[in-house]
Write a protein that binds this DNA or RNA. Structure first.
Length: 290
DNA sequence: AGTTGTGTTGAAGA
DNA sequence: ATCTTCAACACAAC
């Protein structure tokens, strides 16, 4: 499941590999993913645009194109972008044959100006929940779902003061829910909320109003720490997520509680528990977390 | 072989 | 307003 660290990994890869390339064609067998125009118009409007820059807010990816257009992509649950260069195979092991990478429903055909490099940007998405929008950069920024996004969890603007302000507005809510709410803080999903709260030794079902200053500081610190570590490890490939080479990340190797129900806590040996919070599973150690 | 779990987000229902 | 449920969709696991 792509959350902030996975999306950051993809954005870094795209900036490294496809900036400067021009879109020469586009193919799709699932045009439903394109939210604001027909396949035909999408193809017409993206053609000959140069890729200038790639950025993100929370889990949302923005590919800035020439002519003041932006390609906005949300990977949702199983979406991942693959970069396949025609001219040279990836230096490392080739993962493109893996089943998880085989559900390609959209392809951007790219080319460098001198025609030296031909590259496909392919979008694999088993469950087809992903979203693609192409529009003026300004209009993308004004989309309701973008405009209402909360502060990005890894941005410098997300200070402890800001975190406290957010918490103060949500005193009656549960910390396990607040961490996931994209309109409050953007970027944290189901995997990292469990991991952050484990590291913070706070139970997910705790009410905001019951948290001490010490606990709040601890949670804030661990949001940055856990996400940073996950970015360094190129994200979690618990199920479908893959990087632009089709390769899995590494953070699943160091998960402490996520999907560990029934297993022993790495810190104290107590059996890790699972509960449902906001229609999703949350995992915790009943002894380490208070 | 049918049922269930999986999790992101937006929309619909209460 | 605010909370809860569902729907989008496909597959693995039971």
């Amino acid at each position: 499941m792509p959350e902030l660290p996975e999306v950051q990994t993809v954005v870094n890869d795209l900036n490294e590999k496809i900036v400067g390339h021009t879109v020469i064609d586009f193919w799709s067998d699932w045009p439903k993913a394109i939210k604001n125009k027909s396949l035909k118009n999408f193809q017409k409007e993206i053609q000959d645009r140069k890729i200038l820059n790639v950025r993100r807010i929370g889990k949302n990816i923005f590919i800035d194109l020439s002519g003041k257009k932006t390609l906005y992509i949300h990977l949702k649950m199983t979406g991942h972008l693959l970069i396949k260069s025609k001219n040279h195979e990836p230096k490392t092991k080739n993962y493109f044959g893996d089943k998880v990478n085989s559900y390609v429903h959209h392809i951007w055909y790219l080319q460098t100006k001198n025609h030296k490099l031909q590259t496909n940007l392919e979008f694999s998405d088993v469950r087809k929940f992903a979203k693609i929008v192409l529009d003026d950069t300004q209009k993308i920024a004004k989309l309701p779902e973008i405009e209402k996004l909360g502060v990005d969890a890894m941005s410098p603007e997300f200070s402890f003061k800001k975190f406290t302000e957010i918490l103060n507005k949500k005193k009656d809510k549960l910390i396990g829910l607040v961490l996931m709410e994209q309109e409050l803080i953007s970027g944290i999903g189901n995997i990292y909320r469990s991991e952050i709260l484990f590291e913070s030794e706070v139970l997910p079902q705790r009410k905001i109003s019951s948290l001490s200053l010490e606990e709040k500081k601890n949670i804030y610190k661990n949001i940055k720490k856990v996400l940073n570590k996950a970015i360094k490890m190129r994200g979690t490939s618990d199920s479908d997520y893959r990087d632009t080479n089709g390769a899995p990340g590494n953070f699943q190797k160091v998960l402490k509680v996520y999907r560990k129900a029934g297993k022993k806590c790495s810190r104290c040996g107590t059996i890790i528990k699972r509960m449902t919070l906001g229609q999703r599973s949350v995992f915790y150690c009943p002894k380490c977390q208070k």
